[in-house]
């Protein structure tokens, strides 16, 4: 399953709950304000770095918010809109954590 999260981890519990529901083989894509969870050094970092799930972040949303690649938590893969479409197609289901 592909999980998308579009809220900042500091203003919503979306990411925390999403990560708590993660099953083997599931992947996460951070979009919109969800991409703030991709930044290293913050209090929410362990939610991402402590998970065995593969975590992606949407490049255009990172760029809009001034989050450069040197600020990303290790292991996060940046994808474009085409990558978003591929993830949605590759996974049997999509759950949007709004």
């Amino acid at each position: 399953m592909l999980h998308t999260v579009n809220k900042s981890p500091y203003s919503s519990d979306s990411l925390k709950l999403c990560m708590a529901y993660m099953q083997s083989g599931d992947v996460v894509l951070l979009i919109e304000d969800g991409v703030y969870a991709a930044m290293k050094g913050g209090a929410s970092e362990a939610l991402v770095s402590g998970s065995s799930a593969k975590v992606y972040a949407l490049g255009p949303d990172l760029k809009a918010r001034g989050i450069t690649s040197d600020k990303l938590i290790d292991g996060i893969e940046v994808v474009g809109f085409d990558g978003f479409v591929n993830l949605a197609a590759e996974n049997d289901k999509v759950q949007n954590w709004l």
Partner: peptide, 14 residues
Amino acid sequence: DGVYQILKGQDTSE
């Protein structure tokens, strides 16, 4: 999260 408003390097071109 208001501090993110003045983060430098914002680029919405994409």
